[in-house]
């Protein structure tokens, strides 16, 4: 069983935070196939959030076939997130470090680097959607 927590200043909506926390737990092996997620009543009793927020998060997880609801019993994990992307993290981090060195040589300060990264990231994300 895992426990959820909410970060009020993250700008991420509460239901997405729950979805992310379940997915992270699946990636890290904290949740395995057959494990039960906290009941909606437990979550709202602990976090004082709206029950629909929890239901929405669980529905989304169900939609992604990560969990399944068993009527009257609860919501259970049906699939683990095997992390084949983990191996790629190292080389990607090296690339990013090289890029950061280049950006610093070009005279960008930390804030400029962050701004450049975020605008590029957002534009790319929007193009993916469009």
């Amino acid at each position: 069983m895992i426990e959820f927590h909410l970060d009020g200043r993250s700008g991420v909506s509460p239901y997405q935070q729950i979805v992310q926390q379940v997915k992270n737990a699946l990636r890290l092996g904290l949740l395995r196939e057959g494990d039960q997620l906290p009941t909606v009543k437990d979550v709202v009793g602990q976090l004082a959030i709206n029950p629909n927020t929890v239901l929405k998060a669980y529905r989304e997880l169900e939609h992604e076939s990560l969990v399944a609801a068993r009527p009257g019993r609860g919501t259970f994990v049906t699939r683990t997130l095997t992390d084949h992307s983990l191996a790629a993290h190292g080389p990607l981090r090296q690339d990013l470090n090289r890029w950061l060195t280049k950006a610093r040589k070009a005279g960008l300060d930390d804030e400029s680097i962050e701004a450049l990264f975020m605008t590029t990231f957002r534009t790319a994300a929007q193009e993916d959607i469009a």
């Binding site: 909606v40 009543k41 709202v44 009793g45 602990q46 976090l47 004082a48 959030i49 709206n50 029950p51």
Partner: peptide, 14 residues
């Protein structure tokens, strides 16, 4: 306040 809202949300669910 938090305890009150926790109980209220539990009642809503139940």
């Amino acid at each position: 306040r938090r305890e009150f809202l926790q109980d209220l949300m539990e009642a809503v669910t139940e």
